[in-house]
Design a protein around this nucleic acid. Structure first.
Lengths: 292, 292
DNA sequence: CTCCGAAATGTAGCATAACTACATATAATG
DNA sequence: CATTATATGTAGTTATGCTACATTTCGGAG
């Protein structure tokens, strides 16, 4: 929808090639970019010493639907262009821009992930999770451990029995206790840890579903029955921690949200109970991350 | 100029505190952020099963001049949030856009946080952390527990003794063992949990540094010696998990990266050792999230 | 010149959008 | 159960964006 191929640029580029009256409009617009969105055709026309239809024809020439569309596109362009200018005031000297670096990294990694995520894989995973009685999230090595921990924490809130494991022995032991109603979910950025691969094999053997969130075509991915494949670039700057686990967490969020929407009643009730159980502690029922 | 201090955020923040009909509008808006700018009051009202004035009142409640203003501000917000998410139409049918919703939420929350983070507070925290011998990260309630866990995991990689706690008893007990060389780092999205506040008091008493990453002006914030203040909107759609803990994690990343840069030699050596210890397991020294 | 025709611009009126004032319904309170 | 408050809807007003058509302007052929 947002066909906004940088309207301002287009406008500048075409400037000069307009017929006399439209040029007047163009000049005025360029000088008042920020305020146009609050103006009406008639005002703008008056300000340019031009008739209303001229303004509209001008908008059309720029590829907009009409004045309305023009205003919105322009407003969006301006907002995008100006967003960085405004943030310099409150922030101090800013000698070191680690803040920018990390947050920019997070955004670009998110964007990168967005293109990689295969909705079908998500859908398949969601279906499997919905069917499962018990979820076991497995991650080893630190980053993935965090993700697994958080995942269990998310899904139990939906009323699904969930736990997370990160110990190589416990992984195998748990796998051996599973049955067809259970699901083991493996998290790994590399897809190589032996502990996970072996555990997946055991789980498969006993008929449990196995899903992994990991690099596609990795050994772990080959072993599990479903894969959510994602291959994120690691920043070689060892001081700049990777954003990949954040994206993994975001994917867990996607799964949790999708699952919740498939079973809204149960989830709603569970969350209500959880929230109620917390009210006594906080005396506060505002929207909050349920459980701090 | 653009008074648009992230309308989407505001909208999410206030969500839940609306009266019934306005809530209906809010819900619809949140689910159709991108298309609102092309809609008219009457259409929107119809789509929500609500009367036109209700829609307008809703806009006013959000601080907009009227529907017109609302549309423009929202369009600008969406543009800023979405500029990163490449709208590639490779993404399949898109019947259910949970993926987009979660990732868009993450990005807009990140942008929002970017504007809130005070570099001075970060700098102060970094200095304190650099001086500390032992770091104890404290978070209770699930989300913050994850963050604390991950934080300890990050900082130990820099060669700083770090652990994380989430048990109310252990928190207090540990606090009682601390001295001036130690630092307790509290994580809470609300800043209200008793366990954390009490623990901070104990830690203060014994001369340990206390830093919190939480809502500014909260009780926790008042108790600690330093605060990294951030007040994130919670998405009241209980099915859509909050992005706030992801931003918290990103802030931890910022801290870790900053600390690492202040002590590059030690950190580098530690990371080298960690990586070496893992090579045997993976046979792989490519840039990777150190430790899967 | 002046006449024609095409391009450029304007006029006036229409449909719809946004908004307002007031009326009705619903919930809270004594 | 009556009485306020609060929430929501109805219907009508104003302003906005747009369209169909009229008028002007200008370049060139006769």
């Amino acid at each position: 929808m947002i066909g906004t191929f940088d309207l301002i640029t287009k406008l500048r580029k075409m400037d000069g090639s307009f017929k006399a009256r439209e040029q007047q409009v163009s000049t005025y617009v360029l000088e008042n970019l920020e305020t146009i969105s609050q103006t009406s055709v008639s005002n703008l026309a008056k300000a340019c010493g031009v008739s209303e239809p001229t303004v509209i024809r001008y908008c059309r020439k720029l590829g907009c639907d009409g004045f309305k569309d023009f205003k919105i596109q322009l407003a969006q362009n301006v907002a995008v262009s100006l967003q960085y200018l405004s943030r310099s005031e409150n922030s101090s000297p800013r000698t070191d821009n680690t803040i920018d670096q990390v947050l920019t990294g997070l955004i670009s990694t998110t964007n990168f992930a967005h293109n990689q995520i295969n909705p079908d894989q998500i859908a398949t995973a969601v279906e499997a999770i919905t069917k499962a009685q018990t979820l076991i999230f497995c991650g080893v090595g630190g980053g993935s451990t965090t993700v697994a921990f958080d995942a269990a924490n998310r899904f139990f809130r939906l009323g699904i029995t969930s736990l997370s494991l990160n110990d190589a022995y416990l992984l195998r032991m748990h796998a051996a206790t599973l049955g067809p109603d259970d699901l083991m979910f493996f998290i790994s950025s590399t897809g190589t840890p032996r502990a996970l691969i072996d555990t997946a094999k055991i789980a498969n053997q006993y008929g449990a579903a196995t899903i992994c969130l990991t690099r596609p075509n990795s050994e772990l991915s080959e072993t599990c029955s479903h894969t959510i494949g994602i291959d994120l670039p690691e920043d070689p700057d060892i001081y700049k921690p990777t954003a990949s686990r954040l994206v993994f967490l975001a994917i867990i969020d996607i799964l949790a949200a999708s699952v919740a929407r498939k079973m809204p009643d149960k989830a709603k009730e569970t969350l209500r109970r959880i929230r109620a159980s917390l009210t006594a502690l906080h005396g506060n029922t505002d929207p909050q991350p349920i459980g701090d």
